[in-house]
Amino acid sequence: MGEFWSTTVLNYCIALGVVLGGTLLGGIGAFFGNEPPMDTMLRMSEHLKIWALVAALGGTFDTIKSFEVHILGGEMSQVFQQLIFILSAFFGAHFGTVLIRWFIQGDL
């Protein structure tokens, strides 16, 4: 597997892990904090989505800077790669949210 695909899968898994891990541990926190755990988990999964994306990409600033460098350098394939990374992270985060919603509400 090339570096591109491994990074894509890594981004996907990081985003998924951030959402799932954050939500599940947040549920434990909600339990200890006298709050309804499932409802808190549902809300948290939505809130964590964007942060999962950011965490998977290693900070928005780096990505934006690489966009700038590659566009100005005329390396459009690199820009496309970055877009794929962002998309994979987004799908990972979204899949995590969908899984949590499915688990709690029983429907997608």
């Binding site: 599940l24 549920g27 434990i28 339990f31 709050e35 755990p37 409802d39 988990m41």
Partner: peptide, 21 residues
């Protein structure tokens, strides 16, 4: 411990939610 807590939370979370409600 964390795994157990998570498992218990997932198992009884719905019941807890309905009790809170």
């Amino acid at each position: 411990l964390i795994g157990g807590l998570t498992a218990m939370n997932l198992l009884y979370g719905q019941k807890l939610d309905s009790l809170y409600l």
